[in-house]
Design a protein around this nucleic acid. Structure first.
Length: 968
RNA sequence: GCCGGAGUGGCGGAAUUGGCAGACGCGACGGAUUCAAAAUCCGUUUCCCGCAAGGGAGUGUGGGUUCGAGUCCCACCUUCGGUACCA
């Protein structure tokens, strides 16, 4: 970035008369001076309940930014966007008398640091620490009002101790469907011991606890934990020695290096998030989140109501369960499809007489990612397994196929195919010439052949051709037919009503080094035992060699810490009541994923130094519990329990972060929070009451006519005419693109601050557009907000002397404009509409320029400017109150009041339309009623001319807005 | 593929509940000031026709609802985010 020449050289020798101009040099010196002063005075420290300077009479406001992952590249211009927004709001709320909790920290475990470390040989601890130091320096340079005394990073053992502690809570809990909540495993065992019958999802296997031996009991209990060991298929790349994300696998090979990738099941820690599916769904209605995000979560959870249907499989004792949302179409089920991963397929492939084509198909299908399998649904592939099942409704033999369009992870991994009424089944049936039978029609008589159909009939209607000896659906509307079929299936013992969720249990193990260790060990029999709370944290061993291990069998890097892995129960901190201390054990060598630390950090900020608990109950309750109806209302610390009739369900009053986190992070955090809520550890059922997504800051790039992109430094932009690619002379089109190294359009915040100062940077990002929109960075536009600050400075300060220049008497128009600006800016801040707030302040300065302001007017204007450009405002404030002493700060000021009476003009101009087109304007008193407006409009000369000779059909009058005369 | 979002002047955007399309800023053009320039201040700036008064068109495309649509409905196009091991 180059410095615009006009911004250089304040008060240089050639212009000594201008001694006090707001330019880069002055901005930077003001900013550094006030940042040091704020640090010195500790103005942003937020006392907690119990602290001497805590004021319990103020309402609270907990405002949280999504904490950054500290990458080596430093802060991106996208980070300060959300952070400036919350900073403005927090400063505003403090001025309105709130106790504001506004913390910052770092999400510092994760894959990028580990990959970088493997490449460079520098330990992730070191690179991460350096990156955090750089981030902190950059963040402080913006003048954000964080309480830095609350900072922590997820890699701090004092922090991840509690991450592990929360995981142990999930490990030690199960979900009791009778109370729809988590309870401790101890209660489960006590209940079973006393003969309780505890239902499960699949309640057809009655449990006889009393006859079970220890081993069977252990397996049963382990199978109900919220954190449990389960099997999940992963993309294993033996050459790279790591598991890959779906996006890192391209056509069965690794994106990096092109090595073969195999999909294989792996036994690893899971979270039973599916148990919470319904509550995660229901509580979405209670939180103030963007509709789009709530819809995405709803879709992700994906509830569908239907039935489980059991098919007998020919030539064996086994049965095949399918989930269907259309049990009413069972009579039309002409074949079945099982996922290639289905156990039945394994059995068929293993059989002595198995067709090798089946195995070949299954092997290739299993290696396709689910996304591809769903995406390429046009080209159906599959193979007949050679087995048949019996349709329980028709008694017919139907062939069992296996095809990759059926996913093992959804439902039961098997479907009954009803090609007449499901589009995917229809396409598959056409491709493989399978029978299609219509069993739903628009009316009972509208039944014909399906031969000429071009697509399946997926809408509801009435059931037809659906009769057997014991049930008839014919003539029943789809919904009634579903109910009738479920009833019949239940009476026959081959099916029942079932609610299925798309949500899958959450795979929580990673075969990585740079993550939280699990507080769990395995004995020689392979049984797992928890590390006791008192022994936490289980520290991540300081490996020098953390490279992945090349192997066909996934082996996490922690396996290299041999002495750490092989230990005794006593050394590992297992409760002696669980295992004798000298029992040899192996530690878990998987680590937790990056999500772990970000699932609960908002709780730790409430009380980050606490060594006894993740946060004291008083602090957690004070900051998290809010009265309903307000964004944040007063609460009485430590004395109130959550009460749904009084309190908002969500804790954090405002959480700002990118929409890319709309589902995963925000769903995972909700899930952890609900576990803690059920166990009585936190006061609210939801972590975040109000959520807002800031948009992405993009950049410009150029596109050739063939669609390829050109880096910005290879293009010349003229003031008129199109942009030209320098190398070829070809015309290129300017487009909006993500900032990327390859397009060389990445903006470094440090450079922008060096060129304009932090206040201008803050103001520019807020003026760019709506906070939630994605917006392109345009360096050329920054000068606009910088000039605004210069005009504001000149309005207040004589540039030749540096003294304030003030009127003695207030100008009435300026005063009126000021009231309007105060009202508009306050309202806009509450709505997070900072761009229009800034436009209003610019208008005020433009109005006042040339007229001048009084000291009182300047003070009021300066206070509304303060949240946006705190250093600038602090400097003006210091000039306004030179004698107020060191305790003075605009940070501590009150928000100025406005007089509502000053917002309204006496008379207004109202447009008059004829047939919806504006043809004239009339000036009327602001409070004129409809009759007055209509009369005035019809009396208007231009209007009279236009409607002459026409019939007035109607006159629409909206008082204060417009008049529309409908005449023809 | 599926889920979600966005398309308004030369550019970023405004229009908060269906009621004057283009606030504010950038850029451009013109003027004042200056020996000259920078900076600053003032003005013009959606497009088309017209000397003007004025008229016509216009918010991605095509339809629709309404006295009135950037805003609501239907279909489509383009583009961005997510799609479970990037966080």
């Amino acid at each position: 970035m180059t410095t615009p020449p006009e911004l250089d050289g304040n008060a240089t020798e050639e212009n000594a008369s201008v001694r006090s101009r707001y330019d880069v040099g002055m901005a930077i010196s003001i900013e550094e001076r006030w940042q040091a002063a704020w640090d010195e005075a500790d103005v942003y420290r937020t006392p907690n309940p119990g602290d001497v300077d805590f004021d319990p009479d103020r309402p609270k406001f907990y405002c949280l930014d999504m904490f950054p992952y500290p990458s080596g590249a430093g802060l991106h211009v996208g980070h300060p966007e959300g952070y400036t927004a919350t900073d403005i709001l927090c400063r505003y709320k403090r001025m309105r008398g709130f106790n504001v909790l506004h913390p910052m920290g770092f999400d510092a475990f994760g894959l990028p640091a580990e990959q970088y470390a493997v490449q460079t040989g520098v330990h992730p601890r070191e690179t991460t620490q350096a990156a955090m130091d750089n981030f902190r320096r950059q963040l402080k340079r913006f003048g954000f009002s964080y309480d830095w005394s609350r900072e922590f990073a997820t890699i701090d053992p004092d922090y991840y101790r509690w991450t592990q502690w929360i995981w142990l809570r999930a490990y030690g809990s199960w979900f009791d469907p009778r109370v729809n909540a988590a309870r401790s495993i101890a209660e489960l065992e006590a209940g079973l011991d006393s003969g309780e019958v505890i239902p499960t999802d699949d309640d057809d296997r009655p449990l006889d606890w009393s006859t079970m031996d220890t081993e069977v009991r252990r397996r049963y209990v382990d199978g109900r934990r919220l954190a449990y060991l389960g099997e999940q298929t992963v993309n294993w790349c033996p050459k790279l020695g790591t598991v890959l994300a779906n996006e890192e696998v391209i056509d069965g090979r690794s994106e990096r290096g092109g090595h073969p990738v195999v999909r294989k099941p792996l036994r690893q820690w899971m979270f039973r998030i599916t148990a919470y599916a319904q509550r995660l769904l229901d509580d979405l209605d209670l939180i103030r989140w963007p509709d789009s995000t709530r819809i995405m979560q709803r879709e992700w959870i994906g509830r569908s109501d239907g039935a489980l249907v059991r098919f007998e499989v020919e030539g064996g004792a086994e049965t095949l369960d399918v989930f269907t949302t259309r049990p009413d179409t069972l009579f039309g089920a002409t074949y079945m499809v099982v996922a290639p991963e289905h156990p039945l397929v394994d059995e068929i492939v293993a059989a002595a007489n198995a067709d090798p084509a089946i195995e070949a198909y299954v092997t290739s299908a299993r290696n396709r990612a689910d996304v591809d399998r769903m995406a390429d649904s046009k080209e159906k592939t599959g193979v007949f397994t050679g087995r048949h099942a019996i349709n329980p409704a028709t008694g017919e033999r139907v062939p069992i196929w296996t095809a990759d369009y059926v996913l093992m992870g959804y439902g039961t991994g098997a479907i009954m195919a009803v090609p007449a009424h499901d589009q995917r089944d229809f396409e598959f049936a056409r491709a493989f010439d399978l029978p299609i039978r219509q069993v739903v029609a628009a009316s009972v008589d509208a039944v014909g052949s399906c031969d000429d159909w071009e697509e399946a009939m997926t809408d509801g209607g009435v059931a037809v051709a659906s009769v057997n000896d014991s049930v008839s659906l014919d003539g029943l509307a789809t919904e009634a037919a579903k109910a009738a079929m479920i009833e019949w299936l239940a009476s026959e013992g081959c099916g029942r009503r079932r609610i299925n969720f798309k949500l899958r249990d959450w795979l929580f193990s990673r075969q990585r080094y740079w993550g939280e260790p699990f507080p769990v060990v395995f004995d020689d029999d392979g049984n797992h035992h928890p590390v006791s709370d008192a022994a936490l944290p289980v520290r991540l061993p300081d490996l020098e060699d953390y490279e992945p291990i090349e192997s066909d069998e996934p082996t996490p890097p922690l396996g290299k810490a041999v002495d750490w892995v092989r230990t005794t129960a006593g050394e590992a901190g297992v409760d002696p009541a669980v295992l004798p201390p000298d029992t040899p054990v192996r530690r878990e060598i998987n680590t937790m994923p990056g999500w772990a630390g970000s699932c609960w950090y908002y709780l730790r900020y409430c009380d980050p130094g606490n060594g006894e608990r993740f946060a004291s109950r008083d602090a957690e309750r004070y900051w998290m519990l809010s009265e309903r109806g307000d964004d944040a209302g007063p609460t009485v610390a430590g004395e109130v329990d959550f009460d749904a009739s009084r309190h908002h369900v969500g804790g954090v009053d405002l959480y700002v972060g990118g929409a890319e986190h709309a589902v995963l992070h925000l769903l995972y955090a909700r899930f952890w929070h609900k576990i803690l809520f059920d166990l009585g550890e936190v006061s609210t059922p939801e972590p975040v009451g109000r959520l807002f997504h800031q948009g992405m800051i993009t950049s410009f790039a150029f596109k050739r006519s063939d669609g390829s992109l050109v880096p910005v430094d290879e293009v010349r932009e003229s003031e008129v005419g199109p942009a030209i690619e320098i190398a070829t002379g070809e015309t290129v089109e300017r487009i909006v693109a993500k900032m990327s190294k390859s397009l060389r359009n990445v903006i470094n915040p440090d450079d922008v601050i060096a060129d304009y100062g932090a206040d201008t940077f803050r103001l520019y990002e807020m003026a760019m557009g709506p906070l939630d929109a994605s917006k392109p960075w345009n360096t050329r536009d920054i000068v606009g907000v910088h000039r605004f600050l210069q005009r504001a400075w000149r309005l207040a300060v004589d540039e030749s002397t540096g003294e304030l220049r003030l009127r003695d008497e207030a100008d009435a128009d300026v005063e009126r404009a000021l009231h309007r600006t105060i009202a508009k800016v306050g309202d806009d801040i509450e709505r997070l509409a900072f761009n229009t707030a800034i436009a209003a302040m610019i208008e005020f300065v433009n109005t006042a320029t040339g007229v001048g302001v009084t000291a009182d007017q300047l003070d009021r204007f300066n206070r509304i400017l303060g949240p946006f450009v705190p250093h600038f405002a602090e400097e003006i404030d210091a000039k306004l109150r030179p004698d107020a002493g060191p305790g003075r700060s605009v940070v501590l000021a009150d928000w100025p009041a406005f007089d509502p009476a000053m917002l309204q003009d006496d008379s207004i101009e109202v447009p008059v339309q004829v047939l919806g087109k504006v043809r004239s304007r009339i000036t009327v008193p602001a409070d004129a009623d409809a009759a007055t407006l209509e009369a005035a409009a019809l009396a208007d000369e231009r209007i009279r001319g236009l409607i002459e000779g026409k019939t007035i059909r109607k006159v629409v009058v909206v008082p204060g807005k417009l008049v529309n005369v409908v005449a023809n």
